[in-house]
């Protein structure tokens, strides 16, 4: 019924999205779109709704109203094919969420084998390839607990890449890491951006957002308060964004 979007259509589009948790209105008419190859950074204070907006894209939250289209899937509809959607969308979490009982290689090959039916040998080659992309080839047979936080997060990115998603979502992926480990993860994401991956990221790293994002969406009280190219971080027009970037959030 819904064909895959032609290349001129956005990969991700939200239109007037509404979402409440009980009496609390978390998303109040949120709209934005992400074009193919674009990097969009969602920023804002804690509680502004940015993480919820991101989770709605992969339908970890159901919306109350509005329209979400991701790679041709109508995510706002109850009959959306979740498994098809999630093959097109990769998501990386703040807490890495590697599977602790599996080696890094098994973590990576699990979904390609189980979901796409790829042969084991082929999946192993794929695991080597994506681990090389994040600089962790030597950790193929390690267990997650043997890796540092930064390495675990890079492995989680590799696991997501192995499904060859059309868009990647990053939910505060460096918030649990110290600055040194943050840098190694951000480097991997920068490389992905350079390779043309479409990405939506929720981040508190303003310097990073400024450097990598094609577009910034500043959320405030469940609404898109200000949006524009990365330059809005240095010359914001609304007082809220001015205050947000002025309170020491803009590290370079």
């Amino acid at each position: 019924m819904h064909q895959n979007a032609p290349s001129s259509e956005p990969i991700v589009s939200l239109r007037d999205v509404q979402k409440s948790f009980g009496p609390l209105r978390v998303l109040d008419g949120v709209s934005f779109a992400v074009q193919r190859g674009e990097v969009l950074a969602l920023i804002g204070r804690s509680g502004s709704g940015k993480s919820t907006a991101l989770r709605c894209i992969d339908r970890f939250e159901k919306v109350d109203g509005g329209e979400i289209v991701v790679c041709g899937h109508r995510v706002d509809r109850p009959d959306v094919d979740l498994r098809a959607l999630r093959q097109d969308v990769g998501i990386v979490f703040q807490s890495y969420n590697l599977f602790p009982h599996l080696t890094i290689e098994q973590n990576i090959t699990l979904a390609p084998c189980a979901v796409k039916g790829i042969a084991t040998a082929q999946a192993r080659d794929l695991a080597r390839k994506v681990l090389a992309q994040v600089g962790l080839e030597e950790k193929l047979h390690a267990y997650p607990e043997q890796l540092s936080g930064g390495q675990q997060q890079r492995a989680a990115i590799a696991r997501s890449l192995a499904m060859q998603p059309k868009v990647m979502l990053f939910d505060e992926v460096t918030s649990a890491l110290d600055p040194e480990l943050t840098a190694e993860v951000l480097k991997v994401i920068e490389q992905l951006a350079a390779d043309g991956m479409t990405m939506v990221m929720v981040t508190h790293e303003m310097g990073f957002a400024k450097g990598i994002a094609d577009r910034i969406v500043f959320m405030h009280r469940g609404k898109v308060h200000e949006t524009g190219p990365a330059s809005i971080l240095t010359s914001p027009t609304t007082p809220e964004l001015t205050q947000f970037v002025g309170t020491g959030n803009l590290k370079s």
Binding site: D58, F60, L82, R83, A84, R86, Q87, V89, G90, I91, F93, S95, N97, L98, F99, L110, A111, A114, V115, A156, R159, S160, M163
Partner: peptide
């Protein structure tokens, strides 16, 4: 989050349960 990670990788409910 282990459920969510498995869901995010498009595993079916049975696969999430049995493999993760």
């Amino acid at each position: 989050p282990q459920w969510e990670a498995a869901e995010g990788l498009a595993l079916s409910r049975t696969q999430r349960m049995s493999k993760v």
